[in-house]
């Protein structure tokens, strides 16, 4: 852990502080001040956040957001990523496909995560009706748009992969040519 650098003070004071720090608090005085200040603000805003009859639900949302992310969302996308890596690792191929699947899938998943309510309005029901009633806009369009963007992302990725797979042989030839030219220029310069 980080230590707060002590200014030049009497050794006795330093020793006393270090003793206290190590004995029970384990951190420097700045740490304690910051923690107390931070929790004071948390308490002041927290009682207002939790005012009203539905405070247990607010606590569930606040803590649940962290738990849901750390224990569900993150392991899920990490496992999905591992599956992508395993399926695309370049067994027998010169170039791994991993990035060409991982990148469009991650971007498409990100859009779904952020705009899930909008995208889900395509299923109809009360939320979609509420959106249409409030804004006067059609609610069903977002699923199609998300699918379209995802399709474009995967198509661009596939084209890119195709170009990279077809090109190397020609690129190698060009590179050799360029290297020869560079060498010649360097020799001229000497």
């Amino acid at each position: 852990m980080r230590r707060v650098r002590m200014p030049g003070r009497a050794a006795a004071v330093r020793g006393w502080r270090r003793l206290r720090r190590h004995r029970w608090y384990g951190e420097g005085p700045l740490h304690l001040v910051l923690m107390l200040g931070s929790f004071a603000l948390t308490g002041y805003a927290g009682v207002r956040l939790l005012a009203g009859g539905r405070w247990p639900l607010v606590v569930v949302w606040f803590v649940g957001a962290a738990l849901l992310h750390d224990l569900v969302l993150l392991p899920l996308y990490a496992l999905a990523d591992r599956a992508v890596v395993r399926c695309t690792a370049g067994a027998g191929r010169r170039r791994s496909w991993t990035a060409f699947v991982r990148v469009p899938a991650a971007l498409s998943g990100l859009l779904l995560l952020v705009w899930f309510p909008l995208i889900s309005y395509a299923a109809g029901g009360a939320p979609a009706a509420h959106y249409e009633l409030a804004t006067g806009l059609p609610a069903g369009v977002f699923l199609g748009r998300w699918l379209l963007i995802s399709a474009v992302l995967f198509a661009v990725s596939a084209l890119w992969l195709l170009c990279r797979t077809v090109q190397p042989r020609r690129a190698v030839g060009r590179l050799r040519h360029r290297r020869r030219a560079t060498k010649r220029r360097a020799a001229d310069g000497d």
Partner: peptide, 20 residues
């Protein structure tokens, strides 16, 4: 996204939540 699923007034939750 007009998906008012959270428990209570958005203004209250978002404002005091920001201070916490």
């Amino acid at each position: 996204q007009l998906a008012y699923l959270f428990p209570g007034s958005f203004y209250r939750l978002h404002f005091y939540g920001a201070w916490v």
